[in-house]
Design a protein around this nucleic acid. Sequence first.
DNA 1: GAGTGGTCTAGACCACATC
DNA 2: ATGTGGTCTAGACCACTCT
Lengths: 241, 241
Amino acid sequence: MTPKYMVVYNAVRKDISEYKYAANEMLPSGEMLAVKYKCSVLTVKKALDKLVNEGFIVRKRGLGTFVKKMVTTSNTSKNKGVNQIYTSRRELIRPNMSAVVETFDIIKCDEDMAKKLNLNVGDFIYYIVRVRLFKQHPRIVEYTWMPLNVIHGLELKDVQGSIYFYITKVLNLKIQSAHVSFNAVRPNDLEKKYFNMNDHDFVCEVEQTAFLDTSEIFEYSIAHHIPEYFEFETNVIKELA
Amino acid sequence: MTPKYMVVYNAVRKDISEYKYAANEMLPSGEMLAVKYKCSVLTVKKALDKLVNEGFIVRKRGLGTFVKKMVTTSNTSKNKGVNQIYTSRRELIRPNMSAVVETFDIIKCDEDMAKKLNLNVGDFIYYIVRVRLFKQHPRIVEYTWMPLNVIHGLELKDVQGSIYFYITKVLNLKIQSAHVSFNAVRPNDLEKKYFNMNDHDFVCEVEQTAFLDTSEIFEYSIAHHIPEYFEFETNVIKELA
DNA sequence: GAGTGGTCTAGACCACATC
DNA sequence: ATGTGGTCTAGACCACTCT
């Protein structure tokens, strides 16, 4: 059962996406929307607050609710296989990618990784290196560390497919969130080989710590992307105080 | 007057920051916190929901509220003058930076910039190029475009100082949010000069469209950072459906 | 004054996990 | 059965903007 505020959220979001409201146009008031969707104004507020956080609209006391201009992305080619990571406004679109497994080992946690995964030194962890390909073209090299006591029974065939699928559908675990940080660095030998790069080139680095809904860390990963096929977008709301 | 939910938010956030709760430790229930802070459970929920969004805690129905492990940043030197852009968990810390103005012009909007700033071709806009320095060391080159009809009366002295200050304190406008996207590119001649780089080097690019609380766009900017002194961190919450 | 959104409450009901 | 968080309501009051 989808909550009512999500129904309202989806409906309004759809209207905005389909340009039923022009940029800077005022939306119906909260009360009007509450009548339209047969719910309370607070439920409408919850739906619209979500849209505010995602950067679609602005609500202004005494004035009303307004649609923000859609920011057009510089290079929007889904067909090019751009790896888009969106935390707002757009959908997270990951083109269908296959994986070549370079490394699939079980190792012991060193001090650094113990800190990152919230484990003890010596605990067993998976260490996986995968090259992700879009239509046979290498686009990402992924280094993944996962604790055995959280993710267990992983086999080569799961790693060749979607680890995400294994975690959510086979183990039935729920992914809650991820802390993501970003930078750019030089490629290593493996990446130079796959990306056909040299010492003068660079790759975009996405470092990620991922959490289950139990607040356990189930993954620490570093992904190196080819800059031309990389896109990271987010929305930052200015805090009150 | 700070709203009550912000008081609760700040108090709980402070407790977490000061490690009053260990990682994976359960917080008092919503009802307990409501009693403690003399407010309703819904007000507590609003405060805790904010902490969930920022990646501090996880709330689980039937179980309780848990503190997530603090993710330690790889290179946390505020003194090194790292330009940290955080959209969650941590404070946005921008070290004190001075500015060298390379360009301060009023130009006419071309088609591309008209789209980006939601203006008409030919409208007047500021075009500003600034080099940001930390303790005399160039760290960022910023290219900024701003519409005259929103930000007016800008003078050289304002650009040499903080444009942010001019907008919020002099013009008394309120900044609502920004759409930020990220990549890495080669430096141009100006950047090569200031950063002492060559054609084999690279810079981190942050592209930003910034909005006022009226939903007007007041700025489009591109900032090129030295990778060593750059950090971008955010929290991604997995959506329900 | 009329209309807008922001905050806050008390209370109800539901879904989920544990014992 | 108990305790947890999630959703939803009706209503109150306040702050803000415009006419």
